Amino acid sequence: TRVETATETAWISLVTALHLVLGLSAVLGLLLLRWQFPAHYRRLRHALW
């Protein structure tokens, strides 16, 4: 049971790290898009909202 718990903890930390990385890359990508294509971003936002 001790090994299982350790594996579970490792998986949880791995998944958390993955989610953090994905979230950060998504935010960075959005910022980059907004910085590179302001007109396109505004049009996209206008279409979405």
Rank of each mutant, 00 (worst) to 15 (best):
A26N: 01
L28Y: 06
L20V: 13
A39K: 09
H46R: 05
T5A: 02
H40S: 13
L30R: 03
V21G: 13
H40E: 11
T5L: 06
V15C: 06
Y41R: 03
Q36I: 07
S13T: 15
Q36Y: 05
H46G: 09
A6I: 03
A10F: 14
V3T: 02
H19P: 15
V3A: 03
Q36T: 05
H40D: 05
H40G: 13
H19W: 15
V3Y: 05
A39F: 12
I12C: 09
L18W: 03
L22P: 04
R43N: 09
E4R: 07
F37S: 09
R43S: 08
R34A: 11
T5F: 09
L31V: 14
S13A: 14
H46T: 09
E8I: 04
L14M: 07
L18S: 10
V21Y: 01
V27C: 09
A47V: 08
R42M: 12
H19V: 15
V3G: 01
T7C: 00
L24M: 13
L48N: 01
A26G: 15
F37N: 04
T7N: 09
V15Q: 13
L32Y: 12
L24H: 00
A26E: 02
L14P: 11
F37Q: 04
V27F: 12
L48F: 03
P38H: 10
T9L: 10
V15P: 05
L24E: 00
S25W: 05
E4Y: 06
H46I: 05
Y41I: 12
L20Q: 01
S25M: 07
L31R: 01
L33P: 00
L24V: 09
F37C: 12
H19F: 15
G29L: 12
V21W: 13
T7D: 11
L44T: 03
L28H: 00
L18N: 02
A6E: 04
V15A: 10
I12G: 09
T1G: 03
T1C: 08
W35H: 09
Y41L: 14
T5K: 01
I12R: 13
T9H: 07
T16E: 04
V27M: 07
L30D: 00
S13R: 10
Q36N: 05
W35M: 04
A26Q: 02
R2T: 10
H19Q: 07
P38G: 13
W49R: 05
L48E: 00
T1K: 11
A10L: 07
A17L: 09
E4H: 06
I12K: 14
R42F: 11
T9Y: 14
L22W: 04
A47Y: 08
H19K: 06
A17H: 01
P38E: 05
G29E: 01
W35R: 08
L32N: 00
L20M: 07
L31E: 00
V3L: 08
V15W: 08
L48D: 00
L48V: 05
T7A: 12
T7K: 12
A6D: 08
V3W: 02
I12S: 12
P38L: 11
L22S: 05
V27G: 11
L30Y: 13
L14E: 08
Y41F: 12
A47F: 12
L22R: 01
L24A: 07
Q36V: 08
A39V: 13
T1F: 09
G23H: 01
L24K: 00
S13E: 05
A6N: 07
L30M: 09
R2W: 12
L28P: 04
L20N: 01
G23Q: 03
L22T: 06
P38T: 08
A17G: 09
W11V: 14
L48W: 05
V27Q: 03
Y41T: 07
L28A: 13
R42L: 11
V15Y: 07
G23C: 13
T16H: 06
L30V: 12
R42T: 14
V3M: 04
R43H: 05
L31F: 14
V3R: 00
L48T: 06
L18G: 12
T5W: 03
L44R: 02
A47T: 05
R34D: 00
A39L: 11
Y41Q: 03
R2G: 06
T9C: 06
F37G: 06
V3Q: 01
L24P: 03
L22F: 10
W35I: 07
T7L: 05
L20Y: 08
A10P: 10
E4F: 06
T16Y: 10
T9W: 15
T16S: 10
Y41N: 03
L32D: 00
G23A: 14
R2P: 12
S25R: 02
T9R: 15
P38A: 14
L20T: 09
L31P: 02
W49V: 05
E8L: 02
R34W: 10
L44N: 01
T1S: 09
L20A: 10
S25F: 12
V27A: 07
W11K: 15
T1P: 01
L31Q: 03
R34P: 05
V3H: 00
R42K: 13
T1H: 09
H40I: 13
R45M: 12
T1L: 11
A6W: 04
T9A: 13
L33C: 14
L18H: 03
T5Y: 02
A39I: 13
T1D: 04
V3I: 10
T5Q: 02
T9K: 15
L14D: 03
H40N: 08
Q36M: 11
